Measured scan of single mutants.
Amino acid sequence: MSIQHFRVALIPFFAAFCLPVFAHPETLVKVKDAEDQLGARVGYIELDLNSGKILESFRPEERFPMMSTFKVLLCGAVLSRVDAGQEQLGRRIHYSQNDLVEYSPVTEKHLTDGMTVRELCSAAITMSDNTAANLLLTTIGGPKELTAFLHNMGDHVTRLDRWEPELNEAIPNDERDTTMPAAMATTLRKLLTGELLTLASRQQLIDWMEADKVAGPLLRSALPAGWFIADKSGAGERGSRGIIAALGPDGKPSRIVVIYTTGSQATMDERNRQIAEIGASLIKHW
């Protein structure tokens, strides 16, 4: 067993022997301040990774656009098919120029040779490549099948209805392509620590998230040296922004954090800054 596999296998073990965790309302004060600064709703939840206990939450059962955070769930569904012998990570998928959609920095470079399922998941999570996500959605049967996968996990809230990039439209009061912070946090925890996926697939999923290259201005910008984070960000229309993450000190994750916002007129930089400040408060009061 590799060191990384050992780390993920012992996530519940280490967490069980940690000192009790206590909620700190100071972080919620910052979440509410972010709402004021952005002029928009902000949803927040913080779960203990081992027990699933909610440590703090704000608007945990209000719907927010998922945006690209759905790509972690998508690759979880792909990995479940791999575990069941219905898919192979090494299978190569070929596609054409007509398949390319807006923001496809990886797939646009491989029109000639195609990409493997493993490479597509890596591109979808680490670079948020939209064509990679659409190609992977095709392998599982489309958005409705991802929703069905989530329902089978016990998540009857999260739903995907459309493809990239239309799913980022974020129309107010439109339930399409949305989740709730509580539902997303619980589902992410199941994917990373539950028995739904094999140990190898859980490790692969967290490795992809740990290698995320496009979430630097968010929670990662607030992390002290030595902290662990595996995350996936999302951005959408109407001032929408979000991030889902597993993080913790001492090089291992111990909490799940989900943050979503929508309806702001603020710039992307300002949305990023507010999420980073929430992260800084979380870490300060850990």
Rank of each mutant, 00 (worst) to 15 (best):
F6C: 10
A9Q: 08
L10C: 11
I11Y: 11
I11Q: 05
P12I: 13
F13G: 07
F14Y: 09
A16G: 15
F17G: 09
P20V: 03
F22I: 07
F22W: 14
P25S: 10
P25Q: 13
E26V: 10
L28I: 03
D33R: 15
D36E: 13
I45K: 01
I45V: 15
L47Q: 07
L49S: 07
N50T: 14
S57W: 11
P65L: 03
M66K: 00
M67A: 14
F70N: 05
F70V: 12
F70W: 08
F70S: 08
K71R: 01
L73T: 08
L74M: 09
C75M: 06
A77S: 10
S80M: 12
S80T: 11
V82P: 01
D83T: 05
D83N: 05
A84R: 12
G90H: 12
G90A: 13
R92T: 11
Y95H: 05
S96C: 10
Q97E: 15
N98M: 11
P105K: 06
L111G: 06
L111H: 09
D113Y: 12
G114Q: 04
G114P: 03
M115R: 05
E119R: 05
C121M: 08
S122V: 12
A123S: 10
I125G: 01
T131Y: 05
T131E: 03
A132C: 03
N134I: 04
L136C: 04
L137V: 08
T139D: 11
G141K: 07
G142L: 01
P143M: 04
T147M: 07
F149V: 09
M153E: 08
M153A: 14
T158Y: 01
R159W: 06
R162I: 02
R162P: 01
R162C: 07
D174M: 04
D177N: 04
D177G: 03
T178R: 02
A182R: 14
T187E: 03
T187S: 12
L199Q: 14
A200D: 15
A200M: 11
A200W: 07
Q203G: 12
I206D: 04
D207M: 11
D207S: 15
W208Y: 06
E210N: 10
D212R: 04
K213T: 08
K213F: 10
S221T: 13
A225K: 14
G226V: 04
K232H: 00
S233Y: 01
A235V: 05
A235E: 03
G236Q: 02
G236S: 07
G239A: 04
S240K: 01
R241L: 03
L247P: 00
L247G: 01
G248A: 03
P249F: 04
D250G: 13
G251D: 11
G251R: 11
I256C: 06
V258T: 07
I259R: 00
G263H: 07
S264N: 07
S264R: 05
T267Q: 13
M268W: 09
E270R: 11
Q274K: 12
I278A: 02
G279I: 04
L282H: 02
I283E: 04
K284R: 13
H285F: 15
W286R: 02
W286F: 06
W286Y: 07
